[in-house]
Amino acid sequence: MNGYYLSQENVKDFISHLMKKKTVYAPHAKADHSFVFEEVVDADNVILDYVRTLNSIKKYFMPSREVMLRYNLDDNSYSIEDVEPVKGIFLGVHSYDMQAVLRLDHSFSHGNPEKNYLTRRLDNIFIGTSFTPDNFHFSSSVNIQPHKTEGFDLFMHKTDRGYVLEEVTKTGSDLMKGFDQLTKFHGEYPNSEHFKSHLYAPQEKLSKVFEESYDNPVWHEIAQKCVGCGTCNLACPTCYCFDVEDHVDLSLQSGSRERRLDSCMLRGFTEVAGGEVFRDRLADRIRHRVYRKFKYISDSAGEPWCVGCGRCTIYCTAGISIVDIVNRLVSDYDKKQIVQDSDMIAAWD
């Protein structure tokens, strides 16, 4: 596969080239200092050098709100909402958000392959871009380097003067046809960035750490600080739990059944009719969330279900950090090992 230099001046033309092929979705500025993925109308408004977007591109495949059914109350007739493939070019996606999509693919195809999500996922093209980690990114700790190309069709490695554009798949190469403002790149693609935030254990060890951490006091300690607002789940690119609600239209004759993203941090999440709440304690909900990221799914899928984007930490108004929680568990685990080892040595003596 080929690689090309793409100078900063040519980026706009490149975006215009893409816009002729398909609808392009890319990062745009929002409010004072945030970024969001939006459909590109004017290539000038695209910002490829961004820290992270508020929500990940998950929102295109699993919208935060989605009508599932429409019904008529007079005769109990109902119809399913048609779901169409997004068929877009996703430009400027960071590797951790791509990895999150691959994890969602697993979750939605595993067991019962869900039509809504999987249909939207059809026929999309992904163009990655590398990022400079801030204080909150820790994706390298979960095997996701800023230059990881898995899942992408093209990848734009950021350099001082623009980008090195790497063709990753045949689809990516085909996309380049007709765009000639490029010179061939020969050499090694950049592949490392400096991270300021780290988990102190790889997944193989985390799996063991989490086996020993169920009764760690950290869950209770964090619960003192946590307001249980659900922001961490809702900002997470790999969370996909949802709730379903019915609404009746003002005509009183028709209505819709709508699903919306939900959060296992919310008290009502496990509430059954009659009022019993199965994870009533905030500490239990926090534990459940973190275990879902590093243990429950990871044990069978083999990878952490956290992609190290830092959203849950940066958006937490209570200042709770998932990195701090995990590192605390690792350190408690290590201490326990040392004690056990010294006990063994003592027993030998």
């Binding site: 929002k30 409010a31 508020l54 929500n55 659900g230 809702l234 919306r260 959060s263 958006y315």
Partner: peptide, 19 residues
């Protein structure tokens, strides 16, 4: 029975604490 934060995140609002 959940917090306003939920709706803010669903709407992809910038958190006003950042301002």
């Amino acid at each position: 029975d959940y917090a306003v934060c939920v709706e803010c995140k669903l709407d992809e609002n910038e958190c006003v604490y950042g301002k």
